[in-house]
Amino acid sequence: MLSREEAMEFDRHKVIPSWHKEFIEERSFDPTYWPSMATLNYRSSERRSVDQRATARFQRENEALRSAARTVDSPFTAEILKAPNPRKFSIPVFILFDGTTDPIDHVYHIELKMALKTENYSLMCKCFPTSLAGPTLNWLKNLPRGSVDSFRSLCDRFISQYYGNKRPEKDISSLFTMKQHEDERLQGFLTRFNLTKNMVIECHPSTAVQAFILAMTHGIPFHTSLVVNTPKTMDELNERADGFVRLEEEKAANARKTSIISTEEKTKAKIRQKQVQPQRQTSWISEKRPREEKLVTPLKVTLARLYQENKDKFRSPSPIRQPLEQRDQSKHCAFHSDFGHQTNECRT
């Protein structure tokens, strides 16, 4: 227990009110268990600062969550998003659309892929973003929230956005302008012709057959067969072409086999020829043939005079490779325009 003087000294430092002093004096309590007003004010200010920091942190986190929610806002309606997914469903692998191909072909591709799995159009809407890549994803993300209520409306928006990439339709004139290349096989030309024909709208079968006969190389067996007995449809023409394609492939295979056999025979003949030829005797004692000296017409003028009279006809020579300190500085070459030798001594 504290004495009265010690309690009054403690009161002076702790700033305890008078009623508190009397209470301590009467009851003789230990004043160390009683906080002062300064301590209470400090704690309350500290608590307020903690509350302010917590409130600011909550506001920042709330704003971050709101911004994140804005970035993941779906353009689909709540009915599409809440539609249940079938059991054991796996998303098909789509050809990615990057904004450079035909949008109608892409929609048709998705419908065919999803038809193998399900006919749920809400699920088709959910799977549609997985077939987009690059800037097309930004297009889907920028659609208004809840603006897509069906798969048909999504396809209409998609096609109208990338309608400029639509493949142009071809008319019947594109078939009559086709020609079989000189080295093009029948199978390759038939495939190319059928691909072009499939892009032509309302093409009569007999018209397509006539265009194919005109485009073929004249004089080959298949062309003669078509002229003698003209088919009525392209299906009949393709069936008849099957036998000629096999015959052409067999001829090509025989030609490749013949070329391989001839190449092997040539290689064997070279090997036999090397074995028959006697080996060259290499002896250091054998006498060397004397070199035949070339006849050179002697010049009647000096090289310096020759260069002065015809210097416009000479090209600039490459610089002298020998270092300058190793050359004779008293000799100058007009052709090299450098020191080291005289013009009459220049070998270049």
Rank of each mutant, 00 (worst) to 15 (best):
S3L: 10
K14H: 12
F23W: 13
I24L: 15
R27C: 10
F29Y: 15
P31F: 12
P35H: 08
S44G: 06
S45A: 14
S49P: 01
Q52G: 07
R53K: 15
V72C: 05
S74I: 04
P75I: 02
S90M: 09
V93L: 09
T136D: 00
L137R: 01
L143V: 00
G146Q: 10
G146C: 04
S147Q: 07
S153H: 12
R157W: 01
F158D: 00
R167M: 10
R167V: 12
S174M: 05
F176M: 03
Q180F: 00
T191C: 04
N194Q: 13
M199S: 12
I201N: 09
P205E: 12
I213F: 01
M216E: 01
G219C: 04
H223T: 03
E239V: 15
R240V: 06
A241F: 00
R246W: 00
E250F: 09
A253P: 03
A253D: 06
E265I: 12
K270A: 09
K270M: 08
Q279G: 07
R280G: 01
Q281P: 00
Q281M: 11
S283R: 13
S283P: 05
S283C: 11
I285E: 09
E293N: 11
T297W: 07
P298K: 15
L306F: 15
E309D: 14
K313D: 07
R315W: 06
S316V: 15
L324G: 01
S330R: 13
H332L: 12
S337C: 10
F339V: 15
